[in-house]
Design a binder for these strands. Sequence first.
DNA 1: GATGGTAATGAGACTCAATCCCATCCTTGT
DNA 2: ACAAGGATGGGATTGAGTCTCATTACCATC
Lengths: 135, 135
Amino acid sequence: MHEVLAGAGLKRGGARERVIDLLAAQPCALSATEIEDALRATGRSPGRASIYRVLDLLVEHDLAERVEVGDGQARFERQHPSGEHHHHLVCEGCGRLIAFDDPGLERAIGKLSDRLGMRISGHDILLRGACERCA
Amino acid sequence: MHEVLAGAGLKRGGARERVIDLLAAQPCALSATEIEDALRATGRSPGRASIYRVLDLLVEHDLAERVEVGDGQARFERQHPSGEHHHHLVCEGCGRLIAFDDPGLERAIGKLSDRLGMRISGHDILLRGACERCA
DNA sequence: GATGGTAATGAGACTCAATCCCATCCTTGT
DNA sequence: ACAAGGATGGGATTGAGTCTCATTACCATC
């Protein structure tokens, strides 16, 4: 990830480094606050402003994806370079986020895009339900 | 809409009356703040707390739908009694919300629900793109 | 039409994620 | 090593949404 940013003419910096490394090691999306807490626990949390700056930067360069669950705070997740993306299911019982992908859904959106005759540049899909633990 | 709430054993009240009437007259989703401003312009805005209470109540009774566009504020839209629901496309140019529905998409989600083997109780879909004006 | 139990309302304090500002520090090309 | 400009951090600020609680309005009942 660092290389992509360097290629865009950006300088390195400790805050960016730490946020990126943390995000790269996560199995699932983290909120800015969770990132701040996790980094504070290591002893060196960047300023809040830097965290948000880094996250915006990553989203801009398609290195991370913003996931909004409707609880009033944005979560961020590493975006895999392969380009394939996935969506999330929020468990209404425990709040857990579960990732999934579905070609059928993507196909349906492709067709829909044609039908509407509008250029669609992206889509967010969020399912609500019960995870196996809570069902 | 009033009848449904009355049937649920709720009493009437001026605040509810005004929020419901405003929402029923809207072509598109409004945020709580927009509702407050619009009502204040008429000279009698309910308290903020009442507005949020009424909106929650409407959503609970399926009389309104919460739409989140990712700008950090929820919007609310009258839900038609027929039960059919629609989704939204946000224009990245002007921010306009455009409603659409698509059976293919609903079908894809139904199949997906089967494949995942989880009970899915709802879904939010948001497309991003350019509206005809902005394209 | 008066009464009382209960829901509805409103004002404002409060929470908390996110943004803004700006002085200072650090990276990088030369 | 140096300077220019991007990166950083702390702290103040914003703004949507929540909470509390005293007061008011609704309505079934008498």
